[in-house]
């Protein structure tokens, strides 16, 4: 229903993407699924990884928030360390989401989350503890997973919807 808004947002974000992002639409698909690649800034833990993010817009977008999932695995307190890659992001919660919020701000928020994890609001309790209490070990493991999973181009799942 809100194709106009989505088209406009996609045009803006793909032409002048926020720093570190590459945004594209999967071939032969609607504008409701976006393929996003994020490379965090140098001198941060997750650099030089390239992280695939699948952004899905619900049919009642922008009244409901987009759904964001990492397709590249990462060792992060706020992202499930599994193949689901669910993200905990305040801006995406129904009670915080406003219809005037733009996807560009969501992307900013994701980038900030990679630069600075939020261990007080964790999805992975264990990783959050480690991040808080043993930063060196966390850093090492996070780097190891970057090397293991995030140096190739991200592979997006074939979309079924």
């Amino acid at each position: 229903m809100s194709t106009k808004r989505i088209t406009k947002e996609f045009a803006e974000v793909s032409q002048t993407p926020p720093e570190g992002f590459i945004v594209s639409l999967p071939p032969n698909d609607s504008v409701h699924t976006w393929h996003i690649t994020l490379q965090p800034p140098p001198a941060t833990t997750f650099y030089p990884g390239r992280f695939g993010i699948l952004l899905t817009l619900p049919t009642d977008y922008p009244f409901k928030p987009p759904v964001v999932k990492f397709v590249t695995r990462l060792y992060h307190p706020n992202v499930t360390n599994d193949s689901l890659g669910n993200v905990c992001l305040g801006i995406l919660k129904a009670e915080n989401w406003k219809p005037s919020t733009k996807i560009a701000s969501v992307l900013e928020a994701i980038r900030n989350l990679l630069i600075e994890p939020q261990p007080d609001d964790p999805l992975e309790e264990r990783i959050a503890d480690e991040y808080r209490n043993d930063r060196a070990t966390w850093e090492q493991k996070a780097k190891a997973q970057v090397t293991k999973y995030a140096l190739e181009d991200p592979v997006f799942p074939a979309t079924a919807n």
Partner: peptide
């Protein structure tokens, strides 16, 4: 006059 809705872009 000249209004563009920021939500639906109409």
């Amino acid at each position: 006059p000249g209004f563009v809705c920021d939500i639906c872009c109409e």
